[in-house]
Amino acid sequence: MSSPVISRKNTIKFYAFFYYFIYCACAIRDILDINKQEDAILYDERGYKKPYCPANEWGWQIDANGLRYSLIDFYNRYHNPLFIVENGIGIDEKLINGKVYDDERIIYYQKHITAMKEAIEHDGVDVIGYLAWSPIDFLSSHKEIRKRYGFVYVNRDYEEIKDLKRYRKKSFYWYQKVIYSNRTDLENNIDY
């Protein structure tokens, strides 16, 4: 989803959007009504997937190049700076001895930040901001608390609130290092 940010003079100052995963949509030729066809494409349940792209537990296909291509397309289409207001991955994680080793999240961010850097440095895209989603685990609109997005683990599950204690995940320390290095150090070499 995306939306332009408009100033008082009704000129767009920048374009904001979120990116989580790719989605394959294909035309449905046997539906003639355009409204029904749009719904069929948007809520396509035929299960088309892009070959060779891994997916998380919920079937979200992960393709960082999709972010780069989206950045290039949006910038060429709207000729305004871009702001990625959400980018992240939901993972079913477990707290083990007070720690969460979420290397899958780190790999996701490494690839997506690299794709963003390539769009900026090689394709000339003007990206003015990037926000990882999310700083802390929260109740997701889908899959309750099982789908965790945060860098900070909240000790609760869907059935039981528990003590709600917060635990910094491995990705917390990794992302902190990325911020301090101004996105130049993406190595997963955190001593956790």
Rank of each mutant, 00 (worst) to 15 (best):
S3D: 14
V5L: 11
S7V: 06
S7R: 15
R8G: 11
N10L: 13
Y15S: 07
A16P: 10
F18G: 13
Y20K: 05
F21Y: 15
A25C: 12
C26N: 10
C26M: 10
C26W: 08
R29T: 11
D30C: 06
I31Q: 01
L32D: 04
I34P: 03
I34T: 08
I34F: 06
N35C: 02
K36Q: 08
E38D: 00
A40I: 01
I41C: 00
I41S: 00
I41M: 08
L42C: 04
Y43G: 06
Y43S: 09
Y43K: 09
D44R: 04
E45R: 14
E45N: 14
G47V: 09
G47E: 09
Y48A: 07
K49G: 02
K50Q: 11
K50T: 10
Y52W: 06
C53A: 15
P54I: 15
G59K: 15
Q61D: 13
Q61G: 11
A64D: 02
A64K: 03
R68P: 07
Y69Q: 05
Y69N: 06
I72P: 06
N76W: 04
N76E: 10
N76G: 11
N76Y: 08
R77S: 03
H79L: 07
N80T: 15
P81V: 07
P81R: 01
L82Q: 04
L82T: 05
F83Q: 02
I84T: 08
I84Y: 03
E86N: 05
N87M: 07
N87A: 10
G90D: 05
L95S: 03
N97Q: 08
N97G: 01
G98V: 06
D102N: 03
D102F: 02
D103P: 01
D103N: 10
E104C: 03
I106W: 05
Y109G: 02
H112I: 09
I113L: 11
I113F: 15
T114R: 11
T114Y: 07
T114I: 03
A115Y: 05
M116W: 08
K117C: 12
E118C: 09
A119I: 11
I120Y: 13
E121L: 12
E121N: 13
V125F: 13
V125W: 04
V125R: 07
V125L: 12
V127K: 12
G129C: 11
L131K: 07
L131Q: 14
W133V: 14
W133T: 12
S134I: 12
S134T: 15
S134M: 15
P135N: 07
F138K: 09
F138H: 13
L139C: 14
L139A: 14
S141I: 12
E144W: 09
R146F: 13
R146E: 10
K147Q: 03
R148I: 05
Y149V: 10
V152E: 00
Y153R: 01
Y153M: 01
Y153E: 00
Y153L: 00
K162Y: 03
D163P: 03
Y167P: 06
R168H: 04
R168G: 00
K169Y: 07
K170V: 06
S171D: 02
Y173N: 00
Y173F: 14
Y173W: 13
Y173E: 02
Y175I: 10
I179E: 09
S181A: 12
D185G: 14
L186W: 15
N189I: 13
I190V: 14
